[in-house]
């Protein structure tokens, strides 16, 4: 049961990442693209956690934590650049 649920959820998360990629490519404005990239890193955290469950290892947890922190920082940096024209004033 767990194997089947893992496979189904990996497929659903992959479809979600593909939909986000569509929004990154099409998105008519810059905040749309930033929002889609933000959603993509959140989905990739979930994919990495699923991969760790699949292998039964704890190693991939640190990678997910790093992606969470760097993704948040990059989103805030790009938003700040759009808002003020500068990141660190």
């Amino acid at each position: 049961m767990l194997d089947f649920a893992l496979k189904v959820s990996v497929v659903l998360f992959a479809i979600a990442v593909i939909l986000n990629l569509y929004r990154v490519a099409v998105g008519p404005s810059l905040p749309d693209r930033i929002l889609a990239l933000d959603t993509m890193y959140v989905n990739s955290i979930a994919l990495i956690v699923l991969f760790g469950i699949w292998l039964g290892h704890r190693t991939y947890f640190e990678a997910a934590l790093l992606i969470a922190m760097l993704g948040f920082v990059s989103t805030v940096a790009v938003c700040k650049y759009l808002l003020r024209g500068d990141i660190i004033e």
């Binding site: 767990l2 959820s9 929004r23 889609a36 989905n43 699923l50």
Partner: peptide, 21 residues
């Protein structure tokens, strides 16, 4: 319980990405 949480989370993610697209 684990299978339920996995399926529920992935369905939420799919619905959210569908709304984004």
């Amino acid at each position: 319980i684990i299978a339920f949480f996995l399926i529920a989370g992935s369905i939420f993610a799919l619905i959210g990405s569908l709304g984004l697209a």
